[in-house]
Write a protein that binds this DNA or RNA. Structure first.
Lengths: 157, 157
DNA sequence: GCGATATAATTAACTTGTTAATGAGAATGA
DNA sequence: TCATTCTCATTAACAAGTTAATTATATCGC
């Protein structure tokens, strides 16, 4: 009867019947933060004719050297079907090469071309500028701390 | 000549010509973390026949009451074209209602239906369980701290 | 009131995300 | 050897992300 008096917090974590407040939801918070960050980069990338995912793919390719498609997908955070399409699009533009593995016919080896490197060289200064401006706003140490926390979370799950 | 000795870090932030290491990139780290989190929720949502975005939309609708489409898009982190499609899909399933604003014919008012609330009631226990398990793995206080940092970053940009 | 401008939602066109199914090649075991 | 099984990439089908254009309605200025 006076149950309410004894439990002034009707939505404690253990007996909640309602969903978590969307303002304190990890998936939504991560989405918002990502959108806040990417909205700075997207217009610039668009001017260079690459999507966000294509840019990720090229960067991984650039820093890894020749790499198998499955590894590339993993590192670029792109699903295999998407990567197939992205590779095709970038190959058509001459930004990468795609060839079969010598001994294992199932695998595909991908490598960035000089044109691909040139695109990276063209985009990088603007990208670095945007990143620096973000670090200035949010605090460089804050960014580093956040990166550490995100990495920890990713590994914990 | 001995410039190298005085600057042992060839890629300091100020004079970098190469892109940031993708392992320390905020956009990619946010993406990875989000994927790590969502991979836990997606299969469960799929069993209930809703996508991640539809679930976000319904939750906002549930906690906001009748709301204009533009506000809904903002709060659910969904772009207007996507929201149009989502509203149509959920309307077809009777999970929400969609009607024109009384005085402003441009606006659209959306409201959750009892069936929509029933779906929320059905999904919520599983959702809460998954969230709790994540908090247990990562640490509840760590989650809270991360949420705070993400919110700060979002507002700072 | 009327034309110009602004805003909300939608549509269009394309890329990507997502899951399931398919195809092709490799590895395994009888 | 050959059938089974497994793995990697691709295709298929549909939902959603993204930008630009379009439509419909409001608002503003004259």
């Amino acid at each position: 009867m006076n149950e309410d008096v004894k439990r002034p917090l009707p939505r404690s974590p253990e007996d909640r019947l309602l969903p978590r407040d969307t303002r304190r939801s990890l998936p939504i918070a991560l989405l918002r933060a990502r959108e806040a960050v990417m909205s700075r980069f997207r217009p610039m990338l668009a001017e260079h004719g690459v999507t966000e995912q294509q840019w990720r793919t090229l960067r991984i390719l650039y820093e890894s050297g020749p790499i198998e498609a499955s590894d590339l997908a993993e590192r670029a955070c792109v699903l295999p079907p998407s990567l197939t399409r992205i590779i095709k699009a970038l190959d058509d533009r001459g930004l990468l090469t795609r060839e079969r593995h010598e001994t294992d016919g199932r695998r595909v080896l991908v490598e960035i071309t000089p044109q691909g490197k040139a695109l990276i060289a063209a985009v990088t200064p603007e990208s670095v500028a945007i990143y620096s401006e973000m670090e200035a706003r949010f605090g460089k140490d804050q960014v580093e701390a956040l990166l550490d926390q995100l990495e920890k979370l990713t590994r914990a799950l």
